[in-house]
Design a protein around this nucleic acid. Structure first.
Length: 440
RNA sequence: CGGGGAGUGGCGCAGCCUGGUAGCGCAUCUGCUUUGGGAGCAGAGGGUCGCAGGUUCGAAUCCUGUCUCCCCGACCA
């Protein structure tokens, strides 16, 4: 992408609305614009990142054996009456009426709908187990949205649902998602710690939330460093290996990890002092096993092996996709701007010309831009007629992992500068060497 | 929902107390000079001061109502 032809509005000062780093940076670097309280438009830069995050989530769900589908944002109220949640769900649910005065709502989640869909077409134990997911916008009319996209009213969420014949099967599905989540967050280049969670109003026995550590996190966290070093690539750990999955689960639950809500000082005291880790965190995922809570209420039954009717056991597994974008920034930035982990960066490389009026500079930049593109490296080329400093500041703010800085001074010696955003390291390389380095 | 704060060119703000017809920085546009970490000079464009009433000869400014946004708390992916 050539910056001169793009819509990437970067602000010199950050709007006064924003309070925390990620929110400020998202506005300043032009990722989002607020449309109403807790509702955001995603501009090209933010949208690219959001899609990267979404794609990682999607790939890991697919690997775990879940099938993607798409359910609507608008749902009929009657669906929620069936599960008994329509009246139970508070004012966070956005209730609307269509022109025929039918009661509708903008979905805050989809357990009810998926249960109905599954019920209507699945009749036999042979069709179980199944795991389904979709990535869709949700709306929860929070009393007080804040922190930008981390606590918005409208948000993009991946929610998966598992259907199993019995509790053991449900547990297996849960373990699979646990592994999928650990792999998902690791791929994004962030540290997300699984913590035993209170399963809350949904009810159920198994529940974990995944917390990204960030100084501005909403809750305080306490955990044993051992949970950070779980090997996810070891032999025997696969989605088809029950023993391996169970071992993983034991490893996760065997180490103390809790937020302030569930913190147990007595158990905490038993953790080795050297392994104790505390800090603040942001919840980016939550997995639940809730058994027959919805299947029972909504009459989901299948014929069992012996001809009897069986009520499937369910679980649901959420990832706050849009929230993750904010959370990643919260966990990865400095005074100059965002520092994207490469896996979610909007572009891998940014090219800056220090002198847009120097022919050799522009030619070298255009050549590198073309070659990087041909090699499949996502590159943003700042070809604007701006001063070097302005462009460098912009690059730092936008946080692309690599910058190639090209100017007459270096070209005189046949080199360009390659800068790593995260470490700040700079190297002077020939354009060919720079190309080789960034395409390898 | 309780408590606090704010709405004035695109962004950040001053002006309001003590009414007299709107200003500053940045951004934008034009020209010239500049050019390796957010340039200088000269000029230009852009605002019914959130909205609605009221007081007054006159309202950004005073009064009433209303909407929106932000912050703290309670609540949440």
């Amino acid at each position: 992408m050539r910056l001169s032809q793009s819509f990437l509005p970067v602000l010199k000062e950050s709007p006064s609305d924003a309070q925390i780093a990620s929110h400020k940076l998202m506005l300043q670097a032009g990722l989002v614009r607020q449309t109403a309280a807790g509702i955001y438009a995603w501009l090209p830069l933010g949208w690219r990142v959001l899609q990267k995050v979404e794609q990682i989530v999607r790939e890991e769900q697919d690997r775990a054996g879940a099938q993607e589908m798409l359910m609507p944002t608008i749902q009929p109220a009657d669906l929620w009456r069936e599960s008994g949640r329509y009246d139970a769900y508070g004012p966070e649910m956005l209730r609307i009426k269509d022109r025929h005065d039918r009661e509708m709502l903008y979905g805050p989640t989809n357990e009810d709908m998926i249960t109905a869909l599954f019920r209507d077409d699945v009749k036999s134990y042979r069709d179980l187990p199944r795991m389904l997911y979709h990535i869709q916008w949700k709306f929860r009319d929070e009393v007080r949205p804040r922190f930008g996209v981390m606590r918005g009213r409208e948000f993009l969420m991946k929610d998966a649902y598992s259907f199993d014949l019995d509790e053991a099967g449900g547990q297996r599905s849960y373990y699979r998602q646990l592994l999928a989540y650990l792999r998902t967050f690791r791929r994004m280049g962030i540290k997300a710690v699984p913590m035993q969670a209170d399963s809350g109003p949904i009810g159920g026995k198994l529940s974990h939330e995944f917390i990204i550590l960030a100084p501005n996190g909403e809750s305080e966290v306490f955990y044993d460093a051992a949970v950070e070093s779980i090997d996810l690539d070891r032999p025997g750990l696969s989605y088809d290996d029950d023993a391996g999955l169970a071992a993983l689960f034991n490893e996760v639950t065997g180490s103390y990890a809790a937020t302030d809500e569930t913190h147990d000082p007595a158990r905490w005291a038993m953790v080795d002092d050297k392994a104790k880790r505390t800090g603040r965190g942001i919840e980016v995922g939550h997995i639940f096993y809730f058994g027959d809570r919805y299947s029972k209420a909504m009459g989901l039954k299948v014929s069992g092996r012996d001809g009897d009717m069986v009520t499937p056991m369910m679980g649901s597994y959420g990832v706050g996709v849009s929230r993750l974008v904010g959370a990643i920034i919260e966990a990865s930035h400095d005074d100059n701007g965002i520092i994207w982990p490469e896996a979610v960066a909007p572009w891998k490389v940014g090219i800056v010309t220090m002198r847009a009026d120097d022919e050799a500079t522009v030619a070298a930049a255009a050549d590198l831009y073309q070659k990087l593109g041909a090699a499949g490296v996502e590159t943003l080329y700042d070809d604007r007629d701006e001063r070097g400093g302005v462009k460098l500041g912009g690059m730092d703010l936008m946080g692309l992992p690599w910058q190639i800085i090209i100017g007459p001074r270096g070209l005189k010696d046949g080199v360009v500068e390659v800068k790593n955003r995260a470490s700040g390291e700079r190297e002077e390389l020939t354009p060919e060497a720079a190309l080789a380095k960034l395409t390898s």
